[in-house]
């Protein structure tokens, strides 16, 4: 506005104060002013062009941003789907193994009942024979019969135990323990026919697995490998057992196990910018795989 006003006033002054016959002497001024107007117009055009370019650039940035957001959203969605699928798989696997555990726990109850029944039957027989021995004093035939009954009891219990071990090993295989059976069917059963004195003497050396009398505690280990491992970890934490002797059992002797880690994106960014490492080692490795 101000400029326009100055221009108008200047023109008025020139027109009013310069005689007509002298106008020709102002031609150079008019040409110069006209040139300046031309330059101003040029600048206005450039400014207009710059504004168009700016708008175009903004649009492009907006598009790229939208594309990037879309890509990230898709990536996120795919990752979440993956996680959901993995969670479902784990839930299904957990449910399957819990069913197996429940089945085995139910069988364990039956097995214990069966063991007690065998024990009761044979104890009843043994008691009868022992009473008969007392009645007939040292009767060799009855003593022999007693020994035979005890032997039968041992065999019956052992056979029942071996059947149960095979059943448990099958269950362990079913839950993913594919290696050697974790329970040895040939494990010796230590049925305890010792006197109280003998028991006391040996109590510190041996675990008592006797089923013979009703008061005897049944001490077979029905734990799954997972439960054993959990118990072992507890014992390790409390220092009850030595770690070095149990590494294999825990299966933590893997040399490639990550024992420590530290976020170092700063260093890794430098590596990414190192041509020597990226072009010299990393990309050639990836390309060699693709060949």
């Amino acid at each position: 506005m101000m400029k326009e006003k100055i221009n108008e006033e200047t023109t008025e002054v020139l027109e009013s104060s310069v005689p007509e016959e002298l106008q020709k002497y102002l031609e150079a001024d008019e040409n110069a002013i006209s040139d300046i107007d031309g330059v101003l117009e040029d600048i206005d055009n450039k400014k207009e062009s710059l504004n168009s370019e700016k708008e175009e650039s903004e649009k492009e940035f907006d598009n790229r941003l939208a594309e990037f957001q879309d890509m990230i959203a898709k990536e996120r969605e795919a990752a979440l789907e993956d996680f959901a699928r993995r969670e479902q798989d784990l839930d299904a696997e957990k449910s399957r193994i819990e069913d197996i555990k429940l089945e085995q726990q139910s069988k364990q109850v039956n097995y214990i009942d069966s063991l007690k029944e065998i024990s009761d039957t044979y104890n009843s027989k043994i008691n009868t024979i022992e009473e008969a021995i007392k009645a007939c004093e040292d009767n060799e035939t009855l003593t022999k019969a007693l020994e035979e009954e005890k032997e039968k009891l041992l065999q019956t219990l052992e056979s029942s135990y071996n059947d149960r071990i095979l059943e448990l090993n099958d269950a362990l295989k079913e839950v993913g323990f594919d290696s050697e059976p974790s329970i040895d069917p040939d494990t010796e059963i230590n049925l305890d026919f010792r006197t109280d004195e003998e028991k006391e003497r040996d109590s510190k050396k041996q675990i008592n697995k006797s089923y013979l009398t009703p008061d005897t505690e049944i001490n077979l280990d029905f734990r799954t490998e997972e439960e054993k491992e959990r118990d072992l970890l507890k014992e390790l934490e409390t220092g009850k057992i030595n770690l070095d002797n149990n590494l294999d059992l825990l299966n933590i002797s893997d040399e490639n196990e990550v024992v420590d880690y530290e976020a170092r994106e700063d260093v890794i960014n430098d590596i990414y910018q190192s041509k020597d490492i990226m072009e010299g080692h990393v990309f050639p490795y990836l390309k060699s795989i693709m060949e």
């Binding site: 893997d254 040399e255 490639n256 196990e257 990550v258 024992v259 420590d260 880690y261 530290e262 976020a263 170092r264 994106e265 260093v267 890794i268 590596i271 990414y272 990393v282």
Partner: peptide, 19 residues
């Protein structure tokens, strides 16, 4: 935690950058 962009130490004492 996530190991990406971390410096990890393995049990065999080797250290690796997770690129």
């Amino acid at each position: 935690d996530k190991l990406e962009y971390a410096l990890v130490t393995l049990k065999n004492n080797k250290q690796y950058f997770v690129l």
